[in-house]
Nucleic acid binder design. Structure first.
Lengths: 117, 117
DNA sequence: CAGCATCCCCTTCGATACTG
DNA sequence: CAGTATCGAAGGGGATGCTG
C-alpha cells in the first residue's frame, strides 16, 4: 500500500478537511435545529471572529452543505440553513460524537498511563 | 444553545482534533492491515517528514490508539500496531470514507453550481 | 446588519543536519 | 535504523476599521 496526503482529489480527504475544521462542525451543529441569522451564529458560537464565520459559511455554502437566504429588507437579514446534504453530514458528526463519548474514557486513561511513564 | 470551540475537555472536540489531523488518519489507515516499522511508514506515507511522523506517532501512542514495540536488536527495530481502541477508531474512519464516497458527487456538483454563479 | 479588506502575529510544519 | 535538534518559511486566523 502507498498513500498520500496530497491526494486532494480523494473524497475522504475532502470530507476529512471539512470535518477537521473547527468552525465548520460547530456551525453544522448550530444549524441542526433550524435556520439561524448571521449575528445569531456569531453570538452563540463562542470565540468565532466575523472573518472566520463568513469564511466558513462561504465554504459550507460552496460545498452545498448550507443554504444562504438574503431578505431584501432594511436592515439586511440573512438566514443560513442546512441543506439535505448538510443534514446528512450532521448525521455523520453525530456518529462521531457517539464514538467520542463511548471511548473518551479509554483515551483519558491511556494519557494518564502515558504521562506516568 | 451556546457552543464553544474552546471546550477542549469536550470529548467530541478531542476526537475531532485527532480525526482532523492529516497524518494521524493516514497512519491509522496504514496500520489497519497489521504492524509496520518506522521506516516502512515513512516510505509508504507520501510526503511525511521524520519530524511529523515521530510527533504523530507519539500522539497516537499517548492516546492509546497505537502500541510501540522496541526490539533490542542491532540495528534497532521498532514496530507500531493499532491497539483495540485504534482499530475501533479505524472503524470510524471507514464510516467516514463511506459517507465521503456516497456524497462526494453532490459536493462536487454543488461546487460547480457555486462557481457558475 | 452583514459583511469585506488589511495588517500582522504566532503556530505549524518542512528541510536539513546530526546521534545513540 | 529510528529517531532528535534546530532553523526558517508559510499561512491560518485574530484584531481592527470600513461599507452597502
Amino acid at each position: 500500500m502507498q498513500i498520500s496526503a496530497y491526494a486532494k482529489d480523494c473524497p475522504s480527504r475532502q470530507i476529512l478537511d471539512r470535518i477537521g475544521d473547527t468552525w465548520s462542525v460547530l456551525i453544522v451543529v448550530m444549524l441542526a435545529d433550524g435556520p439561524h441569522r448571521y449575528t445569531e451564529l456569531a453570538r452563540r458560537i463562542q470565540g468565532v471572529s466575523p472573518k472566520m464565520l463568513t469564511q466558513t459559511l462561504r465554504g459550507l455554502e460552496r460545498d452545498g452543505l448550507i443554504e444562504r437566504t438574503v431578505y431584501a429588507v432594511v436592515p439586511p437579514r440573512v438566514d443560513y440553513a442546512l441543506t439535505e446534504l448538510g443534514r446528512s453530514l450532521h448525521g455523520l458528526v453525530e456518529a462521531l460524537e457517539k464514538w467520542a463519548e463511548a471511548h473518551i474514557d479509554e483515551v483519558l486513561a491511556a494519557r494518564q498511563a502515558y504521562s506516568a511513564k
